[in-house]
Structures are given as structure tokens and as C-alpha cells.
Computed example of a mutant assay.
Amino acid sequence: LAQKDRPMPAVELEALREELRELPWVKDARVSVQLPSTLAIDIVERKPHAVLEKPDRLMLIDAAGVELEPVAKDQTGDKMRISGPGAAKQVAPLETLLASVPALVPQLESAEWVGNRRWNLSFKSGQVLALPEGAETSANALIKFARMDGQNRLIGGQVATFDMRSPPRIYMRVPGRADAVEISGT
């Protein structure tokens, strides 16, 4: 694009396409020559999906975890915040996990990828749900938690942390209590 004097037949379309695809917001590009003097470029833009919390800044990322641009905290809107080493590469599996419990999604504030193997979900109420590792195990635990919340209104209650890392048990930590309360699940 910077070579305005180059004749149209000499434009390297594939090289130009690859150059465009290197831009953070460009997911794909189609480039063609329409003789005598037109270069047609169609851009498929990446859509911001979540906010990745890095140690020194916040980054908008798309659904594939590609970093788009830094963003200020007051400009994140209602996008899910994710954190933890390797979390950007886990955005798609997180979306699959959350799709199993659509009623809980509006109540979620952030998700932390822990130890490169499992998620901690934080709710807008300040409560944290520690899920077990493994896609199927964590999905089953999250569905079980959603059912329990539907029956007992756990979110917004006194419990600060729900730990489901040892199925079928759920450990709940209430601030001010020294002992964890154990509920055996079915």
C-alpha cells in the first residue's frame, strides 16, 4: 500500500495479504486486482471478546485469544476478564464450559486460569468457585453448582469460596469461620 507508483500487474497479492494478516485486528484479508487501476481489499476484522489481565496492563483479545490492543480499565465494558499464565489460549474452552450454564454467565465477573490446568470463576458478588481440572469434570461440576444455586441461592450468600476440586464433595468457606463446611453431593 505504501508503493503507490507500482504498476498493478506487479503487485504481489499474496505478500500483501500476509502483510495485512499480521495486523492485530485483521483476522483475514482478500486482495485482488481489478484492472486497469483498482486494488480491491476485503478485511475480516477480529471482534473483541474478553479482557486479558496482564501484570502491567489490560489487553482486549478475540475468541481465539489473539491480543488486539491495550485497553483502559474504564473501557472494558461488560466483557469477561480472564487472567493467569496461558489463559488467552484457553478462551475457547472456557466459552464451551460456560455455554453449559447460561444462567450463571451474567453473574460472572472474571475467570482465572490456575496452574495451566483449571479455572477459578469469580462472581460479581465477590464469591469464587474453584473448578476441578479436566473439561468434562469441570463442566459437570459447574452444572451441579448451577443446579444447587437454583435450589439454594448460593450466589450472593455468606459463602466466600466454593471449592469443587474434590468431586463429589463441595467445600464452602465462610469468612469468620475457622472450619470449612462440607456438603456431600449426589
Rank of each mutant, 00 (worst) to 15 (best):
E67Q: 14
L16M: 10
K79G: 03
S32I: 04
E69A: 15
D28P: 09
R17Y: 05
A130T: 01
E14W: 11
A111L: 03
V128Q: 05
W25N: 09
L13R: 11
S138L: 07
I143Y: 00
P7L: 13
D179S: 12
G86L: 06
A160C: 08
T186Q: 14
L97I: 04
V71W: 03
S125I: 07
G156C: 04
L68Q: 01
S83L: 10
P85E: 15
I143H: 00
V11G: 06
S32L: 09
E182Y: 10
S166T: 14
Q158E: 12
G65S: 05
L129C: 11
Q3Y: 09
S32V: 05
A92Y: 10
S138H: 05
L131E: 00
Q151M: 11
Y171M: 13
P167W: 05
L97D: 01
P55D: 09
V33F: 03
K79D: 02
M59Q: 08
A139F: 08
G65I: 04
V71K: 03
G156S: 04
G150S: 05
L68Y: 02
L129V: 12
I170Y: 02
G157F: 07
I170Q: 02
G185M: 14
N152W: 05
L13A: 12
A72N: 09
K144G: 12
V11W: 09
R173F: 11
R117D: 12
S37N: 14
K89M: 09
G156T: 06
G185P: 08
Q151W: 07
R169M: 11
I183M: 13
L52W: 07
E136I: 12
I183K: 13
V33Q: 09
P70D: 08
V26H: 05
S32A: 10
H49Q: 12
A29M: 04
Q107S: 06
I155K: 00
A141Q: 00
E53V: 15
L1I: 11
V174K: 03
A99V: 04
R118P: 08
Q107P: 01
S32H: 05
R21E: 15
K89D: 13
G176T: 06
L94P: 01
K47A: 10
L142W: 00
R177W: 08
D149N: 15
E69M: 13
R153A: 12
L39K: 03
E19G: 11
G84E: 01
V174R: 03
G86A: 05
I155W: 00
L98P: 02
A99E: 08
V91W: 04
R177C: 07
I43V: 14
L131N: 00
K4C: 07
K4L: 12
V44T: 15
S83Y: 03
A15I: 11
A64K: 12
Q127C: 02
P106Y: 08
T76L: 10
Q75K: 15
R169W: 10
R165W: 03
A146K: 01
D179E: 15
G176C: 06
S138Y: 03
I155V: 12
M164P: 05
E182R: 14
F145C: 03
T38F: 07
T38D: 08
K27R: 13
T137G: 06
Q127W: 02
E182C: 15
A29W: 02
M164E: 03
I43L: 10
P36H: 08
F162R: 00
A146R: 01
S37T: 11
